[in-house]
Design a protein around this nucleic acid. Structure first.
Lengths: 169, 169
DNA sequence: TTGGAATGTCAACAACACTGACTTAAACTC
DNA sequence: GAGTTTAAGTCAGTGTTGTTGACATTCCAA
């Protein structure tokens, strides 16, 4: 697009915005995301589940009673794609789907006991790595980490993220 | 694993390590990664390429003359998976593969002019978002962002990351 | 010189995303 | 009350990207 930002616009203060610095940020994101998913992936590999199941379980556990449509918006996939995952989770007794009381078209999703157990197992593995990284980096770095990630999200994602955050604070 | 770290071990200083804080970090990572890949994905969708092609192009551009095996280690996929991607890129004239001089088993990979052009287009889109996020967050936050991501990597990934970083500084 | 290790290729398959077309049931609206 | 919209689910087909397994070529060392 523009090479303008390669040469800082206001003195030496913007050296962290050089193309090289940005590329390193891109690569850090790539390698870190691999680590981020590695532990749950290893656990899931032994079962008949994959990363898509993990995501569904995570967000149902996070927002109990959520509707299919809401989950769709959070996950950003098509309903056909989510439905395939949800069908197996319900069939295997990890998730239960209840018809809405106010609006009977809606289905409210909740984790069963078995679902909560799996969620806990996966979450523990992922949190253990996140905890180690946070502890190594320290509180200031963690605050910066979150600030940058939040700025990197699409605005709809930022809304979903904020809603989840607020619902538990 | 353990609920021990939920209650800080040394006073109030470890509040950023609560399970809730860690879950928010996990969700931030999930939503941010979606934003991170969104722009190049949109560009790639119009061509016959996907995210895997982007990754290959990125790292070949980053380490010209690299071997297939080296690329394999960086990308963390099977050689069969990489080969499919590489084959189409070579057939389409974006990447050229030269038989090694010292060791004829090796193939050295380089971007062609067309390959560099595509790399530039994709990189520009991704950097634009990263740049906006970095600028919004400021240098201190960016430093923290990188520290946490680095701590989150597997050690082999951290080595690959460091090697790329050093080779261009 | 022969056998093993390294490098890369071809083929088949599985997971997970997508589009498009459709059904059912409930809710809304005029 | 009829017609439209919304929520959810289904069926069929396709594409990308990962996997294993089998195999050819090249190099090196016993």
């Amino acid at each position: 697009m523009d090479r303008r930002t390669s040469s800082p616009t206001s003195g030496e203060a913007l050296l962290f915005l050089t193309d090289e610095q940005l590329k390193q940020g891109i690569e850090a994101m790539f390698f870190a995301y691999r680590g981020f998913t590695a532990d749950p992936d290893r656990i899931l590999a032994d079962m008949a589940y994959g990363r898509a199941h993990h995501r569904a379980i995570h967000f149902i556990g996070r927002a109990p009673g959520t509707t299919v449509n809401n989950l769709l918006n959070i996950l950003g996939v098509t309903k056909q794609s989510l439905n395939r995952v949800l069908r197996t989770l319900i069939a295997d007794g990890l998730v239960e789907s209840k018809i809405g009381r106010a609006d009977k078209r809606e289905r409210h999703l909740n984790l069963t006991l078995a679902g909560r157990n799996l969620e806990q197992t996966l979450s523990d593995a992922q949190r253990a790595r996140m905890r180690a990284a946070f502890r190594d980096a320290g509180p200031d770095a963690v605050a910066g980490f979150r600030t940058v990630l939040e700025a990197m999200m699409d605005s709809e994602m930022r809304n979903s993220y904020a809603r989840l955050k607020d619902s538990t604070s």
